[in-house]
Structure formats: C-alpha cells, structure tokens
C-alpha cells in the first residue's frame, strides 16, 4: 500500500489530497448554504438587471441597460438616493461620537459598569419591530412623551416627527443612533483595551488633563477602529430597510423611502424584477465603492501603526 509508487500518485500527493478533501468537507455545509442562498441569487440579480421579468414562468427578455435608464429616469428612485444619503449623514457621525464617548466613560472602573454596558448594548439585541412600534408611540405628535418633554422645555411647535415629511427621516435616524450605538460602543471598548496604559501615565506626568488625554491619546490611537466603524456604519446605513419599513413604511408620502424600500416595492408590489435588480446593482456599486475605500484605508492605517 504505502510503497510510494502505488498507482499514479505518490503518498505525499495522496496525503495532500486527503488533507484538502478533509478541509473541503469541513467548509462544505457552509459553502452549500452560501452558494444557494447568497452566491447564486447575487449572480442572478446581475442577470436580472438587464432583463425584463415579472416573476412568472414566462421567458425573460433581454433589455440591456433599459432598466437602469428606467430607474434613473424615475424621480421616486432619485428621491430614494437623496433620502438614503441624508439618512446616512444624520446617522453615521452621531452614532460614532456617542459610541466613542460611551466606550470611554464605561472603560472606567466605576461601580455597576457591567449594568451600564448591558443597558447601552441592550437596544442592539431588541427586536426591530418592537423598537419601531414603541418609538412611534414616543414620537406621537400630539401627546407623545417626546413632544411633551419638548413642550415642557418651551418648544411651542415641536416637530410632528414621523408624520411630518421634513422630520420623519430625523426620527428614524434618532432611533437608529439609539439602537446601534451600543454595538459600536463594544467595538470601541475592545479597542480601548489595546491602548497601553504607559501612554496615559506619561501624559499624566507631563500634566495633561483628562480632556487632553482623550483628544491626544485615545482618539488618535483609536483611528483604525474609528475608520472601521465609519465604514461599517455607512454600509449599514445604505442598506437600511427594516427600521424604515416598521416606523414609516417609507412615508409620509415617500419622504423616507430608501433605496432598499424602493427595490422591495419594485420587486414585490409591481413585480418588475428588472428595475428592482438594477436598483440592487446600484446599491451594490455604492457599497463596493465604500468597501474599496476601506481596503485602501486599512493598508494605510496598518502601515502607520
């Protein structure tokens, strides 16, 4: 058996094949799932984006780039791009700053720190449907708690939040910040553990106060993490669907309709899979661009450190 010249392969080659096979067997379950539920659908949506198809058994027809022309000619679609970008702008920076501040505060050895960490993390694991429904009640324009508090502080005409076309997206952003800052707080907390204490000690000897330490040690040392958080948050914002769907359904009118809401509506209300897939490709292009920025940035930051 093991005389080394059995058949066509050396024992070394056979061992290698066996090893590879074992490796493939281990990744197979995941790979099958990934192929069926992610890879093939992704390829399929690329194909669909140049086809006209209504989801029936009738043949698809090739229409080239007409679907893209169709959606870019649709002002509802252009509106969703604006809404999505404005949502990202209103969400990303506040989430980032609040997550950082929370992490710095909860990195101290104060009493009950575990309770606070849990409390701030909790919204992240709460069901988005429940969160959306509860916040909708808090934002109720006439007797909701949020507006009652604003009135108490002398705001005569508080915004009508989710039923005001100018404020609905702000309301969704606030809920999003509240929900996701806990998660990024944990990311920052992990990164904070990696900053050497000696830096702070040296700064203390030089007479730096707490604020200066935060600004000149913590923030610069966290730059790679901040960059990571920034990219993840931005991608997440462009993919927003569930929170909008639950809170406003894209309304009032279409004031909070985002890119993914548009894709969903095109696909499953109008059954126009071509334009819907074209919209998905646009989203893919945006996310890809952000990811490429991240890749190049990652190289830069890792070189710096």
């Amino acid at each position: 058996m093991n005389n080394g010249k059995n058949g066509f392969l050396t024992s070394k080659q056979r061992r290698k094949i066996r090893n590879n096979m074992t490796g493939y067997a281990f990744i197979l379950p995941n790979l099958i799932g990934y192929t069926i539920f992610v890879f093939i659908p992704v390829i399929f949506s690329f194909v669909l984006s140049v086809m006209s198809w209504d989801g029936s058994q009738r043949p698809m027809t090739f229409v080239g780039l007409a679907n893209f022309a169709d959606i870019f000619g649709d002002r509802i679609f252009r509106g969703t791009l604006v809404h999505t970008v404005s949502y990202a702008l209103m969400t990303v920076v506040p989430t980032l700053i609040l997550a950082l501040l929370l992490a710095v505060l909860l990195n101290n050895k104060i009493k009950g720190v575990a309770v606070f960490r849990t409390a701030f993390y909790f919204p992240y694991i709460a069901s988005i449907v429940a969160v959306g429904a509860v916040w909708n009640m808090l934002f109720q324009p006439d007797f909701g708690p949020v507006n009652e508090i604003l009135k108490f502080f002398g705001v005569a005409n508080p915004p009508r939040w989710v039923v005001d076309k100018d404020w609905a997206m702000v309301a969704v952003s606030i809920v999003s910040v509240w929900k996701y800052m806990g998660y990024y707080m944990i990311v920052y907390l992990a990164a904070l553990q990696g900053i050497s204490n000696s830096l702070y000690e040296a700064a203390s000897i030089d007479g730096a106060n707490g604020w200066q330490k935060l600004l000149y040690i913590t923030v610069p040392m966290l730059t790679p993490t901040t960059f990571f958080v920034l990219i993840m948050l931005t991608i997440q914002c462009f993919k927003v669907f569930d929170l909008v769907y639950v809170m406003t359904g894209g309304g009032p009118g279409n004031a909070t309709k985002t890119l993914v809401n548009y894709i969903y509506e095109k696909a499953f209300t109008s059954w126009e899979f071509g334009p819907a897939s074209a919209g998905a490709i646009v989203l893919f292009a945006i996310v890809l661009a952000i990811t490429l920025i991240q890749f190049s940035g990652e190289k830069k930051w890792s070189k710096d450190l």
């Binding site: 005001d164 309304g251 009118g253 279409n254 109008s270």
Partner: peptide, 20 residues
C-alpha cells in the same frame, strides 16, 4: 392598479397630514 394604488396611498397620506 396595484402600482397606481401605491401613488394614491402616498398622496392620500401627504394630503391628510397637510404636507400637501
């Protein structure tokens, strides 16, 4: 009609909340 109803619903909402 389903696509048109989406428009009817959106406009209805905008009118009823005085946005339009």
């Amino acid at each position: 009609i389903e696509e048109i109803r989406t428009v009817l619903n959106e406009v209805h909402e905008m009118i009823m909340i005085h946005s339009y």
